[in-house]
Write a protein that binds this DNA or RNA. Sequence first.
DNA 1: CACTCACATCGATTTTTGTCAATATGTTTT
DNA 2: AAAACATATTGACAAAAATCGATGTGAGTG
Lengths: 103, 103
Amino acid sequence: MRNYAEDAKVFKALCDENRLRILEILRGGEKCACVLLSDLQISQSTLSYHMKILCDSGIVVSRPEGKWMHYAISKEGSLRAAQLLVELTALYGDGDSCSCCNA
Amino acid sequence: MRNYAEDAKVFKALCDENRLRILEILRGGEKCACVLLSDLQISQSTLSYHMKILCDSGIVVSRPEGKWMHYAISKEGSLRAAQLLVELTALYGDGDSCSCCNA
DNA sequence: CACTCACATCGATTTTTGTCAATATGTTTT
DNA sequence: AAAACATATTGACAAAAATCGATGTGAGTG
């Protein structure tokens, strides 16, 4: 039995344009919030909001260092997300048609 | 240069509980709308709305047959989605830290 | 210890998404 | 051609998500 709400959370992280932009930046390696903020046209509170969603999904991990926050793509989290996607769309059995209507 | 809106569309298809339930049903093979409708506690118009989103994402394909509509998971679409996820989270270069703050 | 700086949280607002009933469209059957 | 049926679309509304300014929190600095 699946927890659809939990599964959906992972993909919610990926369905906002700004969060995809953030990931694009993080693909180059770990970045601190100030870099992200200067690259995106959003306010500081909005960035914080998005980073929370990305971290909660497991795709991004954070590392506090003094008063700065560093963010990076999590290889494990990304892999889990990709595996989840594959699972959710994998056919099982022989996948024959239903015969409810066109019988 | 990426089209984030287009990329996001794929994942939007996966971030609603009802759409994940629909996919779970379709994993067993092609189904017509009436089967989906009877399995889910949603109205006919709501089902139609969700199917449109799933089809637009490429993850599901539809096949009209007379007055009935058959839906199935698209292997190609699913694969593209999984590849997209991998791309969007793939690190490039050596992925070293930024040195903007903690210099 | 007061001050500053970076980030998180809160409250309010706007935008987007999901939902349904009603209606339109298109197909089959009589 | 009309009736019946399956699905799509529309319009209205409710719920959720994104955004920002203001404020709170906690770490470094003078």
